[in-house]
């Protein structure tokens, strides 16, 4: 079923949303919808790009050539995700270079999880398992986002994220069947990443002011707390199977609710990290800014060369 064109563009927009159809770049959309989509897609793109740093940290030190290849390919995938997410954002009339500028000047955010440090090779596995796992829980519903270019980008991204997530878990399974030192590394990494992973779903519903509008526009399909609960329910059996303990004394099955109860997230830490005072915020942005500035002369040269070539083609045609 497609929505018939309507005289009033707003009616067309409302009817498209109501019929669960996609809004496309040339469709009329409310300014608030456009702004929200730009912000959401840009933040997602920035997260992919900044997210390359914590894992990229271990590429040159990966302890086997196979793990090195897996990790390098994964970080490369993240650059690719960033590329097509920036492209999706550009369909809304913004420019990639402006978005990058906003990232490196701190005017647009990225996922707070990447402001935590990677301290051992086990972190590579735990990021795959928990961080990519949480990302998948957040992102799979976005494949049905009402904005077409974003929804389509998310389908491919989710497939690749699922692959990364399995690779991470498989690394942990291998490490858990290795030496005691390796098992200790996995447990330590799990302890450090568990709570930040739960924070990835965003603030509790009662403190999430944009949720209602985003759900009405079908940009968002589930609330933060729903997704967080779902993630906990799925992860506990995986932790058992792996043989690690999740660092939460209040974590237990609640038969009445049919869900796991879990302890309170330290939202004060979340707020500090969001505000810029996480362990690595300054470092991550400084690194991104340095790479961007170091590359300025290269991009300028590429533009100058392209202009010279275009000029030569014109000359030849005269």
């Amino acid at each position: 079923m497609t929505v018939e064109p309507m005289a009033e563009p707003r009616d067309h927009f409302e009817a498209t949303i109501a019929a669960d159809q996609r809004i496309e770049p040339r469709d009329w959309m409310p300014e608030g919808y456009r702004k929200t989509m730009v912000r959401q897609i840009a933040q997602h793109a920035h997260s992919e790009i900044i997210g390359m740093q914590p894992e990229g940290n271990w590429i040159t030190r990966a302890p086997s050539l196979r793990r090195k290849a897996i990790l390098l390919a994964k970080v490369q995938d993240e650059a690719g995700h960033g590329l097509y997410l920036y492209s999706a954002a550009e369909t809304l009339g913004v420019d990639r270079s402006d978005l990058v500028e906003k990232l490196i000047t701190g005017r647009q955010k990225y996922s707070s999880i990447f402001n935590y440090p990677t301290l051992s090779f086990a972190d590579v596995g735990v990021i795959g398992w928990l961080v990519d796992g949480a990302a998948i829980c957040n992102q799979v519903p976005l494949c049905r986002s009402s904005y077409g270019p974003y929804a389509r980008a998310m389908i491919r991204i989710c497939k690749e994220e699922s692959f990364h997530q399995r690779q991470g878990y498989e690394l942990l399974m291998t490490m858990m069947s290795g030496t005691q030192a390796q098992r200790d590394m996995v447990q330590d990494a799990t302890n450090r990443w568990w709570w930040p992973s739960l924070m990835m779903f965003g603030p509790p519903d009662e403190e999430s002011p944009n949720t209602a509008q985003s759900m009405a526009w079908k940009i968002k399909r589930h609330t933060n707390d729903e997704l967080r609960q779902r993630f906990v329910d799925m992860t506990v059996p995986q932790a058992d199977k792996l043989g690690v303990t999740l660092p939460d004394p209040d974590l237990r099955w609640n038969a009445e609710r049919g869900h796991y109860d879990f302890g309170a997230v330290d939202w004060s830490e979340f707020k500090r990290v969001i505000a810029g005072d996480g362990p690595c915020n300054a470092e991550r942005i400084a690194h991104r800014r340095r790479a961007h500035e170091d590359g300025a002369w290269v991009r300028a040269a590429a533009s100058a060369h392209a202009a010279k070539r275009a000029e030569r083609v014109k000359e030849a045609a005269r």
Binding site: G56, L72, V75, A79, L83, R290, A291, D294, G295, V298
Partner: peptide, 20 residues
Amino acid sequence: QQWCTCAPELEDEVALANIG
């Protein structure tokens, strides 16, 4: 590999990782 996250443009990030 040491170029990873340091390339002048995203397209080159992908290309250098690919060659590596």
